[in-house]
């Protein structure tokens, strides 16, 4: 239920933005979710539906999962994050704190843990639409 904490962050932030912009209602909210975060979208959507504030009661949510691409800083090799190559425990650790990837993942080419997360990390409010 780590998804719940992130859903709270989304609701709290979108309400703050709506208030700053003088929106009476948020009609559409686009959310980008990094693959590395391994969010269970069903739980996340359920949490959002339970947390809806008055400003969000008719909001249409849309979600986009951004693939996680990693790049080795030593040999420049790029590769995709794949949960099939890691055990469940490690997958859960990365789910909670995605930077833990640096503890368990290595560059498949040169075995360095010194890699960059190019895409697919975090959760982002991509856009908010509403009526004033």
């Amino acid at each position: 239920m780590h998804e719940w904490a992130l859903a709270e962050a989304v609701v709290s932030t979108s309400v703050r933005i709506a208030e700053e912009k003088g929106l009476k209602e948020i009609t559409e909210l686009k959310i980008k979710i990094g693959e590395l975060q391994q969010i269970d979208q069903e739980i996340f959507e359920f949490a959002l539906s339970q947390l809806r504030s008055p400003l969000l009661k008719n909001t249409k949510f849309s979600f986009e999962t951004v693939k996680a691409e990693l790049k080795c800083r030593v040999c420049n090799h790029k590769w995709r994050f794949n949960t099939k190559n890691i055990n469940e425990g490690v997958s859960e650790f990365i789910h909670f704190v995605p930077e833990i990837a640096h503890t368990y993942l290595k560059c498949p080419k040169c075995s360095s843990p010194d890699f960059e997360i190019l895409t697919g990390r975090g959760i982002w409010l991509d856009s908010i639409k509403g009526v004033k």
């Binding site: 704190v97 995605p98 503890t103 010194d114």
Partner: peptide, 23 residues
């Protein structure tokens, strides 16, 4: 989450991990 393994993190990763944990 890291157990007894080394966690070699650079600046941006440290910041991200801090934000995640606090959030």
């Amino acid at each position: 989450y890291a157990r007894d393994k080394p966690s070699p993190l650079r600046g941006v990763d440290i910041s991200n991990a801090i934000i995640e944990l606090f959030a």
